[in-house]
Simulated scan of single mutants.
Amino acid sequence: MARAQSLAEQAANAIVSGISAGALLPGQRIIETELASLLNMSRVPLREALKILEAQGIVESVPHRGTRVATFDDLRVNQICQARIALERLALADAAPICKADHGVLARLDQIIVDMERSAERLEWLEISKADLSFHREICRLSGNAIVATLWEALARHVFIVFGHEIRDERDAKVMGPQHRRLRDLLAKGDADRLHQEIEDHVLRLRRQRFVSKKPAP
């Protein structure tokens, strides 16, 4: 059975969803009374949630100035992406032979892709982001590597925020399903060598597109 989330964890996830969706902006001050009312909870679990997020570097608390949403600049986003790629390469290397030997273990990934494609049809960007996170979390679970899974979870909220920000530049939501299906199919083949490069292209796709679009014409 899945462990029930505490109120503090629920609040932390709600705040992260708000940051990912752009409802809470970098540098924006978090007003505890307003947020507690919005989340329909007391300020006690909310304060605990803010402590969790501060420890993770997602919010920043400054004496006499309150708590604000941290800034995710290019340097920080690059560091998050590189750490994510390194962890997921390890997970994919372990998961590939398992998936090749038993395609049945891919059922959860298949369902996540279906859910993602349904959300894409309705242009539900936040739900697409959640499906993306679930897909990559499942790969870590399939790997059977508990250390990689634990380290990935420590990065998961950062990944969710970065993906949520970058996906706003996506023109066509329908590309999301096929991109994840490609990873799934390479897992089914047990092609660890191609997965090594594919996960980098997958994680950095939107960042590379953004860089090209900003590059001045010759």
Rank of each mutant, 00 (worst) to 15 (best):
L106W: 08
A107R: 09
Q79P: 00
A146M: 13
R181P: 01
A173C: 13
I139L: 12
I85S: 04
L109S: 11
L7V: 09
F72H: 12
L7C: 06
F163W: 14
H103S: 08
M176P: 00
S61E: 13
K214I: 03
S134T: 04
Q82M: 09
R210I: 04
D172S: 10
V105W: 11
V212C: 07
S134V: 01
S129V: 15
S134A: 15
A14C: 02
A55K: 10
L206G: 05
I167Y: 05
M176C: 14
D94I: 06
A95D: 02
R182E: 03
H158L: 04
L39M: 11
L35V: 15
D94A: 15
R208N: 07
G22E: 13
R168Q: 15
F135W: 10
R43T: 15
V105H: 05
H64T: 03
V69E: 07
I58L: 14
H158I: 01
R137L: 10
G27Q: 03
G22W: 14
H180A: 06
I85K: 00
V212F: 11
Q111Y: 03
R3S: 13
E198D: 00
D169F: 14
I52D: 11
D102M: 05
N145Q: 12
G144K: 11
S213K: 15
G164P: 09
F211K: 08
A70D: 08
L142Q: 10
E54M: 02
G144T: 07
H196P: 00
E170Y: 06
R184P: 02
V203D: 01
I19F: 06
A83N: 07
I147K: 07
L195E: 00
L133T: 08
A14F: 09
A23Q: 15
A21W: 04
E34Q: 14
I139M: 14
W125A: 04
I161Y: 05
L35S: 08
S129A: 15
I113T: 09
P216I: 12
L24D: 01
L53T: 05
A91T: 14
I58F: 03
P218S: 15
A217L: 12
L7A: 15
D201R: 00
E60D: 05
A93T: 06
I113K: 04
A120W: 04
E48T: 14
A49R: 03
N40C: 08
H165M: 08
E166W: 08
K215P: 00
D191A: 07
K189R: 11
G57K: 06
M1E: 08
R181G: 02
L126Y: 06
E34V: 13
R205H: 12
A107Q: 08
G66T: 09
G66L: 14
